[in-house]
Amino acid sequence: MSEQTYEPKIVAFLCKWCSSAGSDLAGVSRIQYPANATPIQVPCSGSVSPMYILSALKKGADGVLVSGCHIGDCHYLEGNYLARRKLHLVKELLQFVGIEENRFRMSWVSAAEGAKFAEVVKEFVDDLRPMGPQEKLKAKRA
């Protein structure tokens, strides 16, 4: 794939109570942002297993985004606290084995923050594009 046509593929795990609604708001507000993210709605950022992230990278995602509610706003009170701790470890481990820091990203985006969601995705795509396709963890199947 040439530089010009390469579009990073992002798998975005979005909490249904906030970031998922935030992405909808970005849409209905007609905010322009790149269409590189495939959203997967999850009940809570705390429900995102590290396995989801590794699996997405294995299946060829160039970047993985996990987005949940701001600290203090979790629908289940502490899900995002748990996510913060768990995914900190994932982030560290990915970097430890030599996966680029920018392949994994996390954000807090509320249902009212359509503009922020658009910004998060845009920044992510901008960071991913120069890195090219993620080949390190991608399964190679004939």
Binding site: P50, L54, A139
Partner: peptide, 9 residues
């Protein structure tokens, strides 16, 4: 890919 996922998991 499978081995890496296994060990990291």
């Amino acid at each position: 890919s499978e081995n890496a996922t296994y060990h990291m998991t």
